[in-house]
Design a protein around this nucleic acid. Structure first.
Lengths: 226, 226
DNA sequence: ATCCCTTTGTGAACCGATGCACAAAGTCGG
DNA sequence: CCGACTTTGTGCATCGGTTCACAAAGGGAT
């Protein structure tokens, strides 16, 4: 049942591949800046920290953009990946919760450079509402819905305390937001149609601790584990 | 060849399971605080946002800590998971790079509450060296090695600009650090024996953008994609 | 124009993770 | 003490992702 599409690109990119595309993109950007115009799968793979077979398979899901015997054209590949990820359009992002983390995110350069635009900052604390952070006025949480609609926000970043996250989440979903990046350490309950990605800083540390413990205790504990 | 271990716990926990243990731990902590003493795999699974079969299989890798017909004892399970993750000991963490992000991390409550102790803050900017952040004195990057040894730091968090990350990374590895949490948007090159976990805030946004684009453009672009 | 060399794109084997479905093991009421 | 009921722990089928290894495709030299 596969369509005999002349378009090489097959609309059904594996999730694992999608998660790596930004990595390739970053590596390609670096190369472009260094004046490299063409790159082999082997070199790009090293720069992105993956193996070359995986890289080639990943890229093959987007289409046949390489030249056998030569490699990939850096600029062209940047464009293709950007387009696939949807980075050729500009995305208005709202950050809710302007504590330390929210502030850090608002100032984070990595966003703007990738087609994301922080279009609004929102907080509940009257102390910070009205402040200017990263060139933006912090607005009151009561204005949440109005701000989202007015600024055309389509992605919301939650950097609120855990207790507030679900409530804010419900409200933004109610006004049509379907993509949420959640930094609050809670499991959000959302309808099927909404995408939530979560980043939990302490989880990463815990995973490191697990491995670190093994390294430290491993040789000794092997006796016990045996 | 499986040992007839009386120790139920088999030293070889799947990576995917390790990554979920902190999630279970968080859910269990919440339940403990709400006075719940016993929980079924079904309830815990819901609280952690996974399905119950997966949860049971995950826990079975640590040992047989449930009671059939009843469920799991919350406190006991918290202890077992904590021990497995190595959270029963205290880990000294150094944060290198005290920009917005480093500052946010230094103040992040989620660390302390999990057995992690921010033991040192280090930066290269003379402007911030000497400042007190989250009760800690910011030390100069030249002191990096000395600070790590003196404070017994075993996990380093890199929150430096991309350009500085590899250099700092090399230096901390040289003094024996084998666990690194990297927020800088670069692929670090490290020896096999060193564990690096990376968090790239803009990657998460890019993945969201990809899915958002599909949702928005999907029905329309199908025409073109055809 | 032909041959050799390089590098892509992919078929196929492999590997780990997921989810189903159920037997085993325990509790509790009578 | 027994039988009904609940919930765990796991064998097994399945699935998605990774890796290997090679045929197909192109470039460049002669």
């Amino acid at each position: 049942m596969k369509s005999p599409s002349s378009q090489p690109r097959d609309r059904g990119i594996p999730e694992a591949t999608v998660a790596r595309l930004p990595l390739y993109l970053r590596a390609l950007h670096g190369m472009g800046e260094r004046g490299i115009t063409t790159v082999s799968s082997e070199d790009l793979a090293v720069a992105a920290g993956v193996n070359s077979a995986k890289l080639r398979k990943d890229l093959s899901h987007l289409g046949s953009y390489g030249t056998r015997g030569v490699g990939y054209d850096v600029e062209y590949l940047v464009y293709q990946i950007s387009r696939e990820l949807g980075l050729t359009q500009d995305w208005a992002v709202a950050i809710v919760g302007v504590g330390n983390l929210g502030r850090a995110l608002a100032n984070y350069g990595g966003f703007v450079s990738r087609g994301f635009r922080v279009a609004a900052l929102v907080d509940a604390d009257p102390e910070v509402v009205g402040d200017t952070i990263a060139g933006l006025n912090v607005e009151h949480i009561d204005e949440l819905e109005a701000v989202i609609k007015r600024r055309g926000v389509s992605i919301v970043v939650l950097a609120t305390p855990a207790a507030a996250a679900q409530k804010v989440c419900d409200r933004v979903i109610a006004v049509g937001v379907t993509s949420i990046l959640n930094f609050a350490p809670v499991v959000l309950s959302v309808p099927e149609s909404v995408d939530v990605r979560k980043v939990d800083l302490s989880i990463e540390l815990q995973i490191l601790a697990f491995h670190e413990q093994r390294k430290a205790g491993g040789p000794l504990m092997a006796v016990d584990g045996q």
